[in-house]
Computed example of a mutant assay.
Amino acid sequence: MAQVKKEDVRNAILEATLSLVREHGYINTTMVQIARRAGISNANIYIYFSSKLEVFFSVYEMWLQDQVAQLEVRVKAAEAPRDQLHILLEGLLRELPAADNGFSNNLIQAISTAGSGEHDSRLVIWLRQRIELLIKSAMPHMRADAARRKRFVQFLVMTFDGCAVNHHFGSELRIDKKTIADLVEIFDKS
């Protein structure tokens, strides 16, 4: 008889993963710990997810989508493109890497421990698309130049990744408010 997937069990796995990764980080969280916290057997996780990486990607996707949605609201609330750019850069390069005690660094840990072919590029594609929409608003001079805009978005995503890693090294490696102001000065053409 085929195993029936239950939404409450899947949610318990996701909640357990989120809390354990927040507490211990991706690398120090095990499937056994996730199962125990979710109140299920370790084997039961594999009915819902094929690997620890897949469980984490599901958790991280929800977390990141929520963070980006909050950032989008703030960016769109600013009237001037320069202010939108400032809020976007501040959010992507300072706030998001620091959110939930540097939760985004767990994605870097997860990807760095994954085997080839285990990566799911769906989320990074989604993030690039969301950032590109905000760039169109915050940098009107880039609206008509899709190729240039895509390169800039790639630069921002890669910089975000670096900021997520550097968050754990302490304040001397983090981007400060003055750097954000300097970046706005460099990139703003409005």
Rank of each mutant, 00 (worst) to 15 (best):
G102P: 07
Q154G: 02
G170R: 08
I180M: 04
H167N: 09
F169I: 12
I175E: 00
I175W: 04
R94Q: 12
C163S: 15
M139A: 07
A164C: 14
I175Q: 00
E185N: 12
I175Y: 03
D188T: 06
K189W: 04
T159N: 04
L183A: 13
D182P: 01
I125E: 02
E132G: 08
Q154Y: 11
A181F: 04
R94K: 15
E132T: 15
E185H: 11
Q154R: 08
A99G: 00
R151E: 05
T113A: 04
A181S: 05
V124F: 04
T113W: 01
C163H: 02
I135K: 02
V157I: 15
T179W: 12
C163E: 10
V124T: 14
A146F: 08
E90D: 13
T113S: 06
S171T: 15
F169K: 09
E172H: 08
L173H: 10
A138F: 05
S116M: 10
N166V: 11
R148S: 12
R149S: 05
I111P: 00
I186C: 02
D145H: 14
K178R: 12
K178Q: 08
N101V: 10
A181P: 00
A99F: 08
N105R: 14
Q154C: 04
Q129V: 10
V157S: 03
L92R: 14
D176F: 10
V184D: 00
E185V: 12
K136H: 07
R128D: 03
L173C: 04
A138W: 07
S116T: 06
M158D: 09
F103C: 01
H119Q: 09
G91Y: 09
F155H: 12
L96N: 01
A146G: 03
V157W: 02
L107I: 14
K178E: 06
L127K: 13
E90S: 15
I186F: 07
N166C: 10
I125Q: 06
G170I: 15
R143L: 07
G117V: 03
D161I: 15
V184L: 10
H119D: 01
A110S: 04
E172R: 08
A138I: 06
D182H: 12
I135F: 05
D145R: 15
L134F: 06
W126T: 03
D120T: 07
H168C: 01
Q154S: 11
D145Q: 10
R94A: 01
A144L: 13
E90T: 15
L156S: 05
W126A: 02
H141Y: 08
G170W: 05
L133C: 02
L134I: 07
K189I: 08
I125R: 07
L173Y: 12
N101A: 10
N105T: 05
F155W: 15
L127I: 14
S171E: 09
C163K: 05
L92G: 05
I186S: 00
D188N: 12
R122P: 00
S137E: 03
Q129H: 14
F160D: 03
P140H: 01
S104I: 06
Q129Y: 09
G117N: 02
T159L: 13
C163R: 13
N166M: 11
E172K: 07
F103D: 00
G162H: 01
A144E: 02
D120K: 11
F169S: 09
H168A: 11
I135W: 01
L93N: 06
D161T: 12
L107V: 15
S121M: 06
S137L: 14
A138T: 01
H141M: 04
A146R: 14
A144Q: 06
M158L: 15
W126P: 08
